[in-house]
């Protein structure tokens, strides 16, 4: 029995306040996942709270066969996916942010080794990812930025392994085209 299981057992026996300990243990992981899909720190916090509330409501369904961390990570990914879908609908009404000089220089330069700072990375990825569907974005983020396996992505998104592989390949191509488009602007 893991440490998490002991805390969860106590919560199930009525010690509701012990849920705060579960939140403290997993909040960094949840914030890290959500930050991949949302840059605004306040929104990340709101989404993280939503993730833990969903976990609370579904606590009876957690059977302990997989570690709690995997379960809460899946809920975080699905919360992010819902958020991206809402954002996608809103995107057409909002003006696109401009790319900074450094980001544009990097995109237009032919060399691979030219410097790329974290701010430019964030700007470029944010704009390019907007060209992808929410589901494509989740797959490419999990695979390339979080280093998740196809099996893990399939478990988190509810898709089959083959569907994940195909989606990842197509998303990668779409992302390349989006980056080329950005460089030409």
């Amino acid at each position: 029995m893991s440490d998490d299981d002991e805390w969860l057992e106590r919560i199930r026996s009525g010690a509701t306040d012990d849920f705060a300990e579960i939140v403290r243990r997993h909040q960094s992981r949840v914030f890290a996942i959500l930050h991949r899909y949302e840059r605004d720190a306040h929104r990340v916090e709101d989404l993280a709270q939503e993730t833990f509330l969903k976990a609370w409501r579904a606590l009876a369904q957690f059977d302990g066969r997989a570690p709690f961390e995997h379960w809460i990570s899946r809920i975080a990914v699905r919360t992010a996916l819902d958020h991206l879908r809402k954002e996608k609908r809103r995107q057409n009404e909002v003006a696109l942010p401009e790319l900074g000089e450094d980001a544009l220089d990097w995109l237009r330069s032919g060399e691979e080794k030219s410097e790329l700072d974290s701010r430019s990375t964030a700007e470029i990825l944010e704009l390019a990812m907007r060209e992808l569907s929410p589901a494509d974005r989740v797959v490419i983020t999990m695979q390339e930025l979080e280093g998740c396996s196809v099996k893990e992505i399939a478990a988190a998104t509810g898709a089959s392994g083959i569907a994940v592989r195909v989606r990842a390949m197509r998303a990668r191509e779409k992302l390349k085209r989006a980056l080329e488009k950005l460089a030409k602007k």
């Binding site: 849920f19 890290a32 990340v44 509330l53 691979e112 790329l116 700072d117 390339e144 930025l145 280093g147």
Partner: peptide, 25 residues
Amino acid sequence: LKQLFESARMETAPAPPPEFAADVL
């Protein structure tokens, strides 16, 4: 593209605020 992903992987997420767990509770 690999360089872009590599750079993005190194980015650190914002730390949860100290009262976050209490807010959730």
